[in-house]
């Protein structure tokens, strides 16, 4: 196993800031702190060469987990091993074999052309001349940025810059790559190109990749395994197909009445976890989603119409995005 995570917990303490003058003086003279648990006992292992998606809503703990695995911060408790190393010790051999790309943090130097930055990275990672030239040619061609290598980073478009960041991050051929929202802010074409590149690189070089993204296309097209975090807990660990089971649809219904989930469950004979409720507006009635097989549609509808008045209905394909959106929204529903 390349990555092993055992019961990792991480909490943060931050000053409690209240508004107004009183709050300002309180913070100055007698600051109060609040504790926030970002990760709550996470366990998983990842195999060498696998492409893994780490997803969750904002604040779910994804970046915290990546920071722990890359050795930037230690866990409050529990144990993480990456390539057999304790990440937080940040030993030289460990640092030479990993890469972290943060979509929101530039690693290259803005006022210099990318080529200057790559030259420095070549020296830092002690990459032999020939190998460096081969890799640079290969990566810049694959990402289609060969003509921009001499351009100052700050003059590049966001997409081109992100591609340069990626080249800079992997020019040393890391065995483990952490990608934190690499397609953030990219247009469809640039994101597609980046995904294609990651796919090829992973398949060819057998590097283990952990990718966090809010773009479900990234997850669907790249990841063979998905880990979903919700409020610091790992609520799903498996292949993306496991989330969108074949032949399943979502029956969307709005009723005049406002029955609870348990009432709906007993009326339809479905388990409660197959029923989800969302409220588009506080004034409107709830929208209820029944995740059922196609051949159950008629019987569920008949059962509902016997007891309630249906005011709106529709049938939706269960896309990964829909499933994950529901998972984020749900408090107790687990897949």
């Amino acid at each position: 196993m390349v990555i092993e995570v055992k019961n990792i917990r991480r909490s943060f303490r931050s000053p409690k800031k209240t508004e107004g003058w009183k709050g300002a003086f309180e913070l100055l003279l007698h600051p109060k702190y609040k504790e926030h648990e970002a990760l709550k006992g996470i366990n998983f292992t990842l195999e060498a060469g696998s492409f893994n998606g780490l997803i969750g809503a904002n604040g779910a703990g994804k970046t915290t987990l990546l920071k722990i695995l890359s050795g930037l911060i230690p866990p409050s408790s529990g144990e993480a091993r990456v390539l057999g190393y304790d990440p937080f010790k940040r030993s030289l051999p460990f640092r030479k074999q990993i890469a972290l790309v943060m979509g929101q943090k530039a690693q290259l130097w803005w006022d210099l052309p990318a080529l200057d930055a790559f030259d420095l990275l070549k020296a830092i990672y002690e990459i032999p001349d020939r190998q460096y030239q081969e890799r640079l040619t290969h990566l810049s061609e694959l990402l289609d940025v060969k003509t921009h290598l001499h351009t100052q980073i700050r003059r590049l478009s966001l997409g081109e810059r992100m591609k340069m960041e990626l080249i800079g991050a992997i020019i040393h051929w890391p065995r483990v790559i952490f990608l934190d929202e690499p397609t953030i802010g990219l247009d469809v074409l640039a994101a597609h190109k980046l995904r294609e590149f990651l796919k090829i690189f992973n398949a060819k070089e057998k590097a283990t990749v952990i990718l966090t993204s809010h773009n479900m296309d990234d997850i669907e097209k790249l990841c063979s395994r998905v880990l979903i975090l919700r409020s610091g807990e790992l609520i799903f660990d498996g292949c993306p197909d496991g989330l969108t089971r074949k032949g399943e649809v979502s029956l969307r219904i709005r009723l005049l009445e406002n029955p609870t989930r348990s009432v709906l469950a007993s009326a339809t004979g479905l388990p409660e976890n197959a029923i989800q409720e969302t409220s588009p507006n506080p004034d409107e009635t709830k929208v209820i989603h029944f995740n059922i097989k196609q051949d159950q549609i008629v019987s569920v509808l008949q059962a509902l119409m016997k007891q309630f008045q249906v005011i709106d209905m529709g049938i939706e394909e269960l896309s990964l995005e829909t499933v994950i959106q529901r998972l984020y929204e749900g408090d107790s529903t687990k897949p």
């Binding site: 210099l112 420095l120 020296a123």
Partner: peptide, 21 residues
């Protein structure tokens, strides 16, 4: 003591400082 990256860092720093003459 590895000289290669140190020299490269010096060169890189100089290039950056003189990017705007």
């Amino acid at each position: 003591m590895k000289l290669q990256w140190r020299l490269a860092a010096l060169k890189n720093g100089f290039r950056e400082a003189t990017a705007y003459r």
